[in-house]
Design a protein around this nucleic acid. Structure first.
Length: 275
DNA sequence: CAACCGACCTGTTCGC
DNA sequence: TGCGAACAGGTCGGTT
């Protein structure tokens, strides 16, 4: 569900209320929500710790703990986080709760049960290999050009690969490719210099705009305060098959690329030759 | 290395 | 109205 912009908005919303809070107790209602630890080992690791900062890496929320370890949460498809008074009734899909020292608790709710909680000495221990952050200085057009030219795979599949570039998901890849005027099936290595520049700029602007609009709410995404985002009103291709392209008026199309629903304008994103 | 498939899960929407 | 199929913002491991 949430991609980089949505996770970023949640991290910003959690940082202030969680800073310096001490974790008093944990409740794990669905043990498999813990990636590697038993509920007992998880409680041992976090109870008594204070949270010093909340931030984001790729699509992971990172909670720095005062013993220099980290709690990480990946929301996957349907995970949600919120801070609520402990006595307030919770959703039936509540999977884990961290009780804080101010009468509130951090609640992890997840209908589909794909989301995971990790505790690790370093962020990379939990996340594995990740590419650069698209909104950080390391993501330059030169880096992108070199990266694209060393892969033969289809553009969309490469952009979805978190080891290549961190944080893009299905919505924002489709939106970025539309803005750049590139077909998702283009071989990564086939992009010319101008196309690389367009893609680099499209990825950054698409993500920045999405964060400014507090993310896209298609069905169940909400931020840490329980509010929906508004970026869904500004998506140009995602979920708009059959509707006219905002640029050329031709009907948008939905196909499947790498088993993912893929939305594009056949006129503005010309199909590569030889398919 | 690249592509595909099934798992992991539940809920909603689509098509007949 | 009913019912199964398809689909959903993600990722992993196994196979071809």
């Amino acid at each position: 569900m949430p991609e980089l912009p949505e996770v970023e908005v949640i991290a910003r919303g959690l940082d202030e209320p969680l800073r310096s809070r001490r974790i008093e107790r944990v409740r794990v209602l669905w043990p498999r929500t813990l990636a590697a630890l038993s509920p007992e080992a998880f409680a041992d690791a976090v109870v008594g710790r204070r949270c010093t900062r909340v931030w984001r890496r790729a699509k992971y929320l990172v909670f720095d703990l005062d013993d220099s370890r980290h709690l990480l949460i990946h929301l996957r498809m349907s995970g949600r986080l919120g801070i609520e008074p402990t006595e307030r009734s919770a959703s039936p899909h509540l999977r884990a709760a961290l009780e804080l020292d101010d009468g509130q608790e951090l609640r992890f709710t997840d209908t589909r049960k794909f989301g995971r909680l990790y505790v690790a000495a370093s962020v990379e221990d939990a996340t594995g290999d990740l590419g650069p952050e698209p909104l950080e200085p390391a993501f330059t057009a030169d880096w992108l050009a070199e990266g694209l030219h060393s892969h033969r795979t289809r553009l969309k599949s490469l952009l979805l690969d978190q080891r290549f570039l961190a944080g893009l998901g299905n919505i924002y890849v489709d939106e970025s490719l539309f803005r750049a005027g590139l077909h998702p099936l283009r071989p990564a290595e086939s992009l010319c210099g101008d196309e690389v520049l367009r893609l680099h700029s499209a990825i950054q602007s698409i993500l920045q705009e999405a964060i400014a609009l507090r993310g896209a709410t298609l069905r169940d995404y909400q931020d840490a305060e329980g509010r929906a985002g508004s970026n869904q009103h500004f998506l140009r291709v995602y979920g708009r098959a059959g509707q006219p392209c905002v640029r050329c008026g031709q009907p948008l199309v939905r196909t499947v690329v790498g088993q993912r629903g893929t939305h594009l304008c056949p006129h503005c994103q010309p199909e590569p030759a030889g398919l």
